[in-house]
Structure formats: structure tokens, C-alpha cells
Nucleic acid binder design. Structure first.
Lengths: 221, 221
DNA sequence: CTGTCCATCCGTGCCGACACCCATATTTCG
DNA sequence: CGAAATATGGGTGTCGGCACGGATGGACAG
């Protein structure tokens, strides 16, 4: 056994659920080479914490009030280039996975994973190695990681911001006319966006669109 | 200070996220009068665990794969009348709250609450007192709880078996004709059932019907 | 600069959802 | 037994979802 490094890696932990922070902190602090030095309950708080502290790794939940983990990740990757970022989320979803990598995260772990996987993901992130969460090794992700490793072109975001906006409203049950009035655009434009969404996501109708939106956490049932 | 009871209350903990179970278990086991004796990762597992074990209280997450916490709560309330049920969820939402009470839960706590509130909610549930999570004391909830306390009539779920069958199929995205073919009845009859469902549940269209079905655990997103 | 992607807009047409009206056979229950 | 609820079937009409065409202007990258 070799000596551990000069000091354990310093971790910032952000999740809006107190109970999750409890569990994660318990697991990470049990490792000699990892220590949680700060907690945050939303994305803005996480960014603020990282500003004033010496932190090596940020573990961010995606779904947080006010500012999401993805948003915070983009901010952190921009302002603190040396900082590693690990997304910790309940969403087993390719969309979010790609979004996370694009936001500057080097790892993506599900909240349902075992303790060991979480620890390994943290260590991998600290080495700046991409971490594939177990059970998500789909062809798409493999392709993505291969391309990322070889410096190839990354696939673009399948869904634009505007489309996500429309997706959310459609899934909430609003008609094209309502959405058009809300966004001050023609109902026909809304329908065009909706049609593009159906095509891009490979779905059939707005009912499947709703279930998709619920699945990825865009809206609540 | 009096002596604690002859034994701590035995708790079954169900949540699909390992990390949440860690946190909750840590908090509850720290209390001398509470002990977690079993864990489950989904609703079906929770029901199975409760069958073979001596359990006083079930702490159930709502959003779980395969079978939701609400579904499991209904099952448990039916098969194990003595068992107390506490819903633990991320949804700060009246709909869910009512759905939980109707499913047989005696408490409703958010995952973002502090440790103390979770412990107090468990103790309240064990005494079979309804627990209002902090910040959710709306008029609607007060009325409901008053009626529950005074033994008044609780709003029932006025859905027949046949209607639930149609509800499920509609929520899965099938058309009236498809459902008619499947159940060997006229599409018009399907439409009549669907119309009755909308009226009974106070919903507007099949999109809300879908979200309702997901909420009560009838189908998955 | 030129091409690609994005957001915006329009017309036509079909079909299913949904509301409103109606009736009838069976079962359940007071 | 008679009333109510349930499950079944029908007709008619409006409206919106969705597919299929098309077009334009602006932003950004190669």
C-alpha cells in the first residue's frame, strides 16, 4: 500500500434534497481520498460556493430549483476551468447525458447506483476521464465517447431551446393557439416546431410527447 | 425522561435511489425509537417485503419504477390494515398529497425537508396522526384533514373496473377504434367510457387522463 | 461568401377527440 | 320489487392534431 496523496480531493456537493446530500456525504467522506467541503441546495448557491472555496470536484444534481445543475455546470466550466464536474441525477436519459457532457461535465451518474460506482465516478472525474454509468452503455453513448476521445465532432443538440420551450407547453396540455398567444408567434409555427419534435424524437403524437417530457423531468405528472 | 418502549418501531424503507435510502436510513437509525429493518427499490418489492416481515411503518417514495409508491400504498393499506404509511417525495404538489391520503397514507413529507421533520413525521405516522409537511397548510388540505379526523366521508374514487381498463388503454395512447377492437366492443362505447372518466375525474382531455394514470401508477411514463 | 441550421410563417386535407343528444340490457342494491 | 348504476350501442357536429406540401430571413461556421 502506498501513502495517499498529500491531501484528499475537496468536493462541492449540490442537491436540493437534504436527504440525498446526507447519503452522498456519508459515502464520500468514508473514503480517505475524498472529502466534502461544501454543500449547496441549488445551482446558484453552488456557483457562489465554488467562487470562494478551494474545490477540486463539483458533484451536481440536475433538477434543482432556480438554477439547474446543467446551468451551474456551464457557469462553472467557464469560470473555473480546472474544476472537474460530475453530474448526479435521477434521469436515465440520453438527452440529459449529452447535455451534461456538452455543459462541461466529465461524468454522469444515476442516483440509483451503488456506493462503489459513485466513488469510482468521482475518482474518474478527478482524473478527467469520462465515466459511463453502469447500464447505460448504449450504442449512441459509446459512439459519442469514442468520438470525444478521438477528438472527432460531437453530435449537436437534437433539440433546440425553442423546441424545448414548445415541448414543455405542449406537454402541459396547451393548444397550438394558446402557445402561439403565449410566445407571440403564429399557431402554425408552434405546429411546425411540434412536428419537428415528433420527427426528431421519433414519437407519434402529443401524448407520447407528454410522456417523454415527464420522463426527462421537464414537467411533472 | 421515561424509558423508551419495549422495542423501537420497525420501518420498511422504499426508494429507487440508493443514495436516498442511505441518507434516510442514517437519519432514522440514529433515533433510539426508530429502526429500519428492510429496504426496497420499487413498489412491488416493498409489498413483497412487507408480506414476510414484522413492520410497523412503511416509508414510501412516490416515483419508483414498475410500481409507484402510491400504488404500493393502496396495496399495503388493503392487505396490512395495521401498517402505517408515510409518503416521502420530491413533489410539492396538492394533487399528490390528496392522492397519497386517498391511497391510505397518514403522512406526506418532502425530500427537501430537514432531518428533524422527517423523524417527527415518522413518529406522527406511528401515532396515526396526519402530518402536514411544513409550508403546505393550505385551506384544501386543512378541510380534508378535518374531515378525516372527524370520521366524515372521504371523497371516493368513483371509477369502475371497466373504466379503469379503458383509462389505462387511453393513457397508453390507443385510439377509440383500437381499444374497441381489443375489448371487442364498439368504439362508441369506448368514447362513452372515456367521456365518463373525464367527467368523474374533472379532467379536460386524454392528455390529462394520461398524466392522471401516471400519477396513480396505472402506467409508466 | 456560401451553405446549413434555426425560427418564423402559410394552405390543404384527413381523422380522431370530444360534446351533446339519444336508447337498452343487465346487475346491484335499498 | 323498483330504482340506480353500469355497460352497451348510436348520431351529429365542431375543433384541433398532424401530415403533407411550400417559403423567408437571420445567425453562424467552414
Amino acid at each position: 500500500m502506498t501513502q495517499p496523496g498529500p491531501r484528499p480531493a475537496r468536493i462541492l456537493l449540490a442537491d436540493d434534497h437534504t436527504l440525498v446530500r446526507r447519503g452522498v456525504r456519508l459515502i464520500l467522506d468514508a473514503e480517505p481520498d475524498l472529502t466534502v467541503v461544501a454543500e449547496a441546495a441549488d445551482g446558484a448557491e453552488a456557483v457562489a460556493q465554488a467562487r470562494g472555496l478551494d474545490v477540486d470536484l463539483a458533484v451536481l444534481d440536475i433538477a434543482m430549483p432556480r438554477q439547474t445543475g446543467l446551468h451551474a455546470a456551464r457557469e462553472l466550466a467557464r469560470t473555473r476551468p480546472g474544476l472537474r464536474i460530475l453530474m448526479l441525477t435521477m434521469y436515465d436519459n440520453e438527452q440529459y447525458f449529452f447535455e451534461a457532457l456538452r455543459a462541461g461535465a466529465s461524468g454522469y451518474v444515476l442516483k440509483s447506483v451503488a456506493d462503489r460506482d459513485l466513488v469510482e465516478a468521482c475518482r474518474a472525474a478527478l482524473r478527467d476521464e469520462p465515466f459511463i454509468y453502469p447500464g447505460a452503455e448504449t450504442t449512441l453513448i459509446r459512439t459519442y465517447l469514442d468520438r470525444a476521445r478521438n477528438g472527432g465532432p460531437l453530435p449537436e443538440r437534437p433539440i433546440t431551446e425553442r423546441e424545448e420551450e414548445i415541448l414543455k407547453l405542449v406537454a402541459e396540455g396547451h393548444s397550438s393557439k394558446e402557445i402561439g398567444d403565449l410566445l407571440v408567434i403564429s399557431p402554425k409555427t408552434v405546429e411546425r416546431h411540434r412536428a419537428n419534435l415528433l420527427q426528431k424524437l421519433g414519437l407519434r403524437d402529443r401524448l407520447e410527447l407528454t410522456r417523454y417530457a415527464i420522463r426527462v423531468g421537464l414537467i411533472e405528472p
